[in-house]
Simulated scan of single mutants.
Amino acid sequence: MSFEKSALKLASSRAGWNLDVWQYLPAAERRTKSLPIIVMAHGFGADKTMGLAYYAETFAAAGYACIVFDYRRWGASDGTPRHVLIVKEQLEDYRTVIKYARQQPEFDPQRLVLWGSSFSGAHTITLSADASVNAVAALAQCPYTGLSPPIPLDFTYLKIAGSVVFDMLKQALGLAPVYIPVVSEPRTVGALTTEGTKPGMLAICSKDVEYRNQVAASSLLQVPSYQPRAKAASITCPLLIVLPTEDNLCLPDGAVQISQATEKCELVSVPCGHFDLYHGRSHHTESITAQLAFLKKHVPPQV
């Protein structure tokens, strides 16, 4: 094998809640004393079993160490209630893993790379603009930048809004959340309902793990106020955005705005939809090729 994988638990910033982590290292014969390290997490309503291993394995085979983790409340990490999305928590979890990575003697603390896709792409953009993170580079595949498709104002919208309000009330009282599907068909109740999103999301699910297609309804309130593109002028490191030009879930205009606002951003446009960039999909090769070229240019592994 061209990489070695191990599993571990990291203490999160919430006492008693651990993050579940996969750590990938290049094969022993390719390992140097001080490896560049890539920190990776999943997107909205997903977990690390949904395609992230393919990226980590590819990067490890190319000479990079990778740490892939689940946020609190998601996947194999701790935290209750389950499947509640809180942007502040997810950014804290990135910082927790970054701090861990910088403390490991086998990793180069000055060559730490951020990686994200879809909603985690939003986090890598945000953290790349944080001088205290001091990332050497960042990659965002089909990222959420703050622009979403408009929501039809119909009866389905009213049902979703009702679920959001009911969920807020229940959680305020310490009761179990009101859940809605993460992905659903257009004009049905769900968090992500654009055309092609449900089959696209289900296509990247692991066949070995049952996907829980649910998210607390009030999590939807976290999305509109989260505007990563507003941080563009503050980005401190080279940033690659792989942009599917036909994306109807994370609208492309936001990524274009980022590329126009900073010379730090390299934009690679691919003529496809949101999920077509993932492993096993039609345009994965273009995406991973661009990512490897970007890494080689800005963070070449030592041989």
Rank of each mutant, 00 (worst) to 15 (best):
G200K: 11
V165Q: 09
S117E: 14
L175E: 06
G200F: 11
V178N: 13
I125Q: 01
P150A: 10
I125F: 05
T193N: 03
D130W: 03
A172W: 15
G121Q: 09
F119C: 02
V178L: 01
D167G: 12
L173E: 08
G146W: 02
A131P: 12
M168H: 15
Q141W: 15
Y157A: 12
T194H: 01
L192Y: 08
P186Q: 07
T156W: 07
S184G: 14
D130S: 01
V165M: 11
S118G: 03
C142V: 15
T124Q: 00
L139P: 03
P150T: 09
V178A: 00
A140K: 12
S132L: 14
L169R: 15
A140V: 10
V183G: 13
K198P: 09
L169A: 15
G146A: 01
L147V: 08
F166D: 13
S118V: 09
I204Q: 05
V178Y: 10
T188V: 02
A122T: 12
R187V: 10
L175G: 05
D154M: 04
V183I: 13
T124D: 02
L175T: 01
D167L: 07
A203V: 04
P152E: 15
Y179A: 06
K198T: 12
P199F: 11
I180R: 08
T145G: 08
V165T: 14
S120R: 01
Y157H: 11
D130I: 06
H123A: 01
T126V: 02
M201Y: 13
S117V: 15
A161I: 08
A191G: 12
L202I: 07
G190E: 04
G116C: 05
S118P: 13
A135H: 05
T194L: 01
H123E: 00
L192Q: 07
T124F: 00
S148A: 05
L112M: 13
A172S: 15
I151H: 08
T124A: 14
S148G: 00
L158C: 04
L175W: 15
